[in-house]
């Protein structure tokens, strides 16, 4: 015969503490890395050959050597950009920022270990807990 586990009753203060822990976790792990711009998409700036720009103190960019053709835009694309209200300078801010997919092997391995380790830990602990549940339910 299995001894039934009788859990302690949680106080109101304990419940509030647990809610605070979860909120701290949500904002600490998810909100802050984005808010502090630590976890941002890996876009890079790639200017076409012969294209440069200078940035004024107020952030305004002055381009030189810029053309739709250098941005790789055919006449149809140019027409569509213009319909959307974009000049070539404004479009250049988008087109010159592609993603960078250089694969860092150590980064991939680290991420894989973290994901795999998480699942293994969870399955191991769950199995242990599940056996207690089944024993209490059926024995």
């Amino acid at each position: 015969m299995v001894t039934r586990y009788v859990p302690p009753k949680q106080s109101v203060a304990g419940q509030l503490f647990d809610v605070a822990c979860l909120l701290a976790l949500v904002f600490g792990a998810l909100f802050l890395p984005i808010w502090l711009q630590i976890a941002v998409p890996s876009r890079v700036e790639k200017l076409p050959p012969g294209v440069t720009y200078t940035t004024a103190a107020n952030g305004t960019k002055t381009w030189s050597g810029l053309s739709w053709e250098k941005l790789g835009q055919n006449p149809t694309m140019q027409a569509q950009w213009k319909k959307l209200g974009y000049s070539k300078e404004k479009a250049a801010d988008i087109i010159t920022h592609p993603f960078e997919y250089d694969i860092d092997v150590s980064g991939v391995v680290l991420t894989a270990i973290v994901v795999l380790g998480y699942f293994l830990f969870m399955l191991f602990m769950s199995e242990k807990e599940y056996r207690q549940v089944i024993a209490e339910k059926f024995d």
Partner: peptide
């Protein structure tokens, strides 16, 4: 997801590991 958003993936995993 790792391609381009690797740090955000790690942030999310950190969340679930600590929560677990």
């Amino acid at each position: 997801v790792y391609l381009g958003y690797g740090r955000q993936l790690l942030a999310m995993m950190a969340f679930y590991i600590v929560a677990s």
